[in-house]
């Protein structure tokens, strides 16, 4: 019978906390950049300019057709030179930057599909009413359509954020010490891998389950 020994966890809590911060940093960056960039992609895709619409569609289809793990590796292995050119030579650790960029660009493709559906869920009459008042098409999108679209989309956006939070654990492939990576390293170091991974799993579960309850409450409120 395997003897559980949880004693290495209390001492590792500060390290694990730092790992959790990295996880949250990647998650929040990907949510914010993903929604902003995803909105632009969705608007371009639905817009009148066929060139922009085509480029946006190509981008979304490309990122949705490759595994996330590969995108993370691409940005770590293939494009660090580009990242250095953009962000300067002064980056101490390319791993975090490349993970942030990879997740933000990847998630934008998924967010853009959610946002596109949200925009299309706003009745066309609302657009006509906005235009009839003298708003430009861009103002109509910004002031009339997007606020309603986002209100309809909140549950879906949060669900995607929960999936994203879990997916950030994939950064272990580039050796970045996020929460999962830190738990793995501590467990490996102390020979207590099973305990640490069980503990990490429990933390992921607690956070995601709590968040999904929030989403459920939002959804049931939206139904009323």
């Amino acid at each position: 019978m395997y003897e559980f020994d949880w004693s290495s966890i209390p001492g590792a809590l500060p390290l694990l906390g730092k790992g959790l911060l990295v996880t949250l940093e990647v998650t929040l960056t990907a949510i914010v950049v993903g929604i902003v960039w995803g909105t632009l992609l969705a608007v371009a895709r639905l817009g009148a300019n066929p060139l922009l619409a085509g480029l946006a569609a190509g981008y979304v289809n490309l990122f949705r057709s490759v595994p996330l793990v590969m995108v993370i590796l691409w940005f770590y292995l293939i494009v660090p030179q580009l990242l250095k050119a953009v962000f300067g030579e002064g980056i101490a650790d390319i791993r975090l930057t490349s993970a942030l960029v990879a997740f933000a660009l990847f998630e934008a493709a998924y967010y853009s599909e959610i946002i596109r559906a949200g925009i299309q869920s706003v009745p066309r009459g609302q657009v006509a009413a906005g235009l009839a008042l003298g708003f430009t098409p861009a103002q109509t999108m910004r002031l009339i359509v997007l606020p309603q679209a986002f209100r309809n989309m909140v549950p879906l956006l949060l669900t995607q954020a929960i999936i994203l939070f879990q997916d950030t654990s994939l950064v272990y492939v580039i050796g970045l010490s996020d929460f999962f990576g830190t738990a793995y390293k501590v467990g490996d170091r102390d020979g207590r891998l099973v305990e640490l991974l069980l503990f990490a799993g429990a933390v992921y579960f607690a956070i995601c389950f709590a968040a999904s309850q929030v989403v459920r409450r939002l959804q049931s409120r939206g139904v009323q």
């Binding site: 009413a129 906005g130 009339i144 606020p147 309603q148």
Partner: peptide, 10 residues
């Protein structure tokens, strides 16, 4: 003025 009013619900 439209058939379905089209006030902005938000």
């Amino acid at each position: 003025v439209f058939q379905h009013f089209e006030l902005f619900p938000h």
